[in-house]
């Protein structure tokens, strides 16, 4: 299986990575090698194998909803590049032109 440059360009767009034409070419070659290697798994017959979400048998884990000490607002915001004292401030990602 090989990837086309347009496939890699789409992944780069989703990851918000700006690739030059040279980088797009190199990434297409390198990613194709890895995807090709992994695609050997498709040769396995898994029709009689039950789907498995995780090998260990931990099921849903619940605990009592008891209030307890936690970070203060100031501590939680301490490393934020931008905040208004109560909330993190981040660039809009929905609705504004060019940001989606």
């Amino acid at each position: 299986m090989t990837l086309a440059p347009k496939d890699v360009a789409k992944v780069a767009m989703l990851a918000r990575l700006a690739l030059s034409d040279d980088e797009l070419g190199r990434m297409t070659t390198e990613l194709s090698k890895i995807v090709g290697f992994v695609s050997q798994l498709e040769e396995l017959d898994t029709t009689s194998v039950a789907p498995l979400a995780h090998p260990l048998d931990t099921q849903n884990v619940f605990r009592d909803d008891v209030p307890r000490p936690s970070l203060t607002t100031a501590e939680a915001l301490q490393a934020a590049p931008r905040h208004d004292g109560e909330c993190f401030l981040v660039p809009a990602v929905l609705g504004e032109s060019g940001a989606a």
Partner: peptide
């Protein structure tokens, strides 16, 4: 060669997939 680099974990990764 990212594939060669990927394969340096060939003998170890099964442990993680099995959770053991």
């Amino acid at each position: 060669d990212p594939l060669a680099m990927y394969l340096v974990d060939l003998y170890t990764v099964a442990t993680n997939l099995a959770g053991v």
